[in-house]
Design a protein around this nucleic acid. Sequence first.
DNA 1: TATTGTTATACTCTATAACTATA
DNA 2: TATAGTTATAGAGTATAACAATA
Lengths: 155, 155
Amino acid sequence: MKLDNAAPFDAKTAAKQPFLTVMRELATTYQAFCAYDEAHIRETGLTSPQFDVICTLGNTSGMFMNQLAEKTLVTKGTLTGIIDRLEQKNLVRREVPPENRRCFLIVLTPEGEALFEKIFPVHIAHLKERFDRLTPDELTEIKTALQRLKSVFAD
Amino acid sequence: MKLDNAAPFDAKTAAKQPFLTVMRELATTYQAFCAYDEAHIRETGLTSPQFDVICTLGNTSGMFMNQLAEKTLVTKGTLTGIIDRLEQKNLVRREVPPENRRCFLIVLTPEGEALFEKIFPVHIAHLKERFDRLTPDELTEIKTALQRLKSVFAD
DNA sequence: TATTGTTATACTCTATAACTATA
DNA sequence: TATAGTTATAGAGTATAACAATA
């Protein structure tokens, strides 16, 4: 919900409900980050979920579908499709472990690893470029503020 | 990108690159908020973009497709589909202004207004419930921190 | 010619539930 | 019976570009 727009959120209402402003700031800050982040991801020819899978598999010896689904926060059915498409692009491979043939170990192919090693550091550098505009103290304050905010949504 | 998962993000790396921690906190905080927010939205029978449109139109006298697209951050082609589905549900209506018949004024129907008036305050109350766990000072600090963070992504 | 919005195309992701094969 | 993953189903959103109607 991008509550930014709702007409009832005029200045008068916001003044009475300061939390609305915080909510909007969270949403717009995340959106600003994502716009910057995703524009760069799209240049790799991958979608965000695909990029997420490649990054999750990078520097590991592989992961099972269920682990991967949990890490990337998609359901197993959805992950099947994502892995299918990455397999078509020759970036990952399904390996059947002999000891449990119910599972697949998802592994980066050499092409997948090459892509990971090519794009990952570049992407991090691209992000760092902006975060470097903050001082160490500011980074600490922001981190603390976010942790406090997150804590109210923990069940 | 949910960089939370990437294996290279071990504690050692994070210590050298404190911004990675901030990035993760932003993503996980937003995700925690969204999980709470969207679970409640889904109970209305609307998707997030649909709910967003209803909230944007609430308490206005209508909006043109292009305005609405800009406000809700979707392209005009995508918005056409969203409005189509809201029209099927009898929640919005396309009106043709006589002075410019190229445009459509998108307006809430009585059913749409009734829904808005029913769900909007309840949704706000649902959110407020959690934000009330923060003190006024904390809210201010968080707001300031988010604004500072957002500023580095402004072009 | 420029603008508003629709349509066409094609893909990706989403959730849910039934299903297969293995354990 | 339980688990791992696939498949089936159905929908929703996404981008892009070509298009029609109007200005």
